[in-house]
Design a protein around this nucleic acid. Sequence first.
DNA 1: TTTTGCTTGATTGTGTACAAAACGCTCGCA
DNA 2: TGCGAGCGTTTTGTACACAATCAAGCAAAA
Lengths: 238, 238
Amino acid sequence: MASTLRDKNQKSAVSKSDAVYRTLKRAILDQALAAGTKLPEDSIGERLGVSRTIVRQALARLNGEGLIELRPHKGACVAQPSLEDARHIFAVRQSLETLVVDTLIGKLTPQQIRQLEAHVDAEGAARTNNTSASIQLAGEFHVLLAKLTENDVLLRYVTELVSRSSLILSLYGRPHSPDCAVSEHRELIAALDKGEREHACELMRHHIDAITTRALLKGNSEKDFPDLLAAYAREEGL
Amino acid sequence: MASTLRDKNQKSAVSKSDAVYRTLKRAILDQALAAGTKLPEDSIGERLGVSRTIVRQALARLNGEGLIELRPHKGACVAQPSLEDARHIFAVRQSLETLVVDTLIGKLTPQQIRQLEAHVDAEGAARTNNTSASIQLAGEFHVLLAKLTENDVLLRYVTELVSRSSLILSLYGRPHSPDCAVSEHRELIAALDKGEREHACELMRHHIDAITTRALLKGNSEKDFPDLLAAYAREEGL
DNA sequence: TTTTGCTTGATTGTGTACAAAACGCTCGCA
DNA sequence: TGCGAGCGTTTTGTACACAATCAAGCAAAA
């Protein structure tokens, strides 16, 4: 596709570690690299044709964003957010995305509204595709909203949280029905368009609640056992 | 306390780049390194007795947190947040710190209340000292609150934003009167203690508003002039 | 048979060397 | 005297090599 070429040019011109960073990030979010997968610097570097130095930089960045875990002398692996992590992440999303809506109310141009609607149309079209692409698109809707605020900090945090949410959904989430996400997104756009501040905020709150519920309902079986053990181990100073 | 010792051992034993990271961060927040100061990898490494590799890691991390700017092939320098950056940062702080208060309401133990009061006492005691230490302590109060939520994500973001706020205050802020900060902190603790949710949230909102005003009111004289020039120059493609 | 200790292999942490790019300086020219 | 080009120096970007650490497998003893 065209974007690949453009990205490749940018990367080679701007920085290689960015390229590796983006590649790994996409691989993680596409679930090509499942949660918990080890990420040895050597193999990745060899596979992508760069030195370990570059890979290390990319891994450090991903670690900073919470997408991988980086334990000293033990290497990196794709993060496995605990249920508690998940609750924390969604709580902060709740707060920040309400701010997004609050910032956007009454300031969206017709063109921007159309842009949002076009995105949701794409979500609707991808409904029949596989789950991961659908989760991806649903997440990008939130990132797009954040981008429209033109608040860099807000955009960065929302982007980060949406990425981590994708990971969580792929770990714990029930099968994910895109239908409700799409309809909720449409309602939100309508409220934003009409300038109904309270209604729009309430819709966003409810929407994130729905995602949270979908994310945390499952996953109480095999995953909690090792976590419990880890808690005990930590108390012993291990 | 015991944790301090443990942390220190961990630091020296576990990783050098952490040490450099912390050193640079403190230097920036203490205004030992003024905004805009160039940070050559070589000099820093030589000064701190580590190789460029380590320094580079620390710089990358600081860049991720917005404390330094890292332009390709041009090196790092202490960040100079624009007034717009400042507005963005405080807007997000507003939102997140309200979440902190909302999370904490009704869940603080008497011991934690005492801990908060002790901190504010320290703020009051440092009132006569120099400005930077005072700003520092006032910021740490907010970090302490975030820590009490036990929400890692929230803590990380608040910490980051408080750091950047310190930088902003040192750049644009008027002389900073610690008195009002202290009294506002005390009121907030009281409201938290009594479990008055709405009142506490309102106090936090008002408090951040006050900080924002203090931060952005000044700085229209000597600092805006070069900025204005830069804007003109950019329009000319320079 | 199970457990403990050692040894080996693999992987990360760090320093250093070389290549490329940007900055400052001097020199030449109008 | 002012301006621009060319060159040398400084600084960053990258690769690689060596040291340190961890995990696994094997052997030996209880």
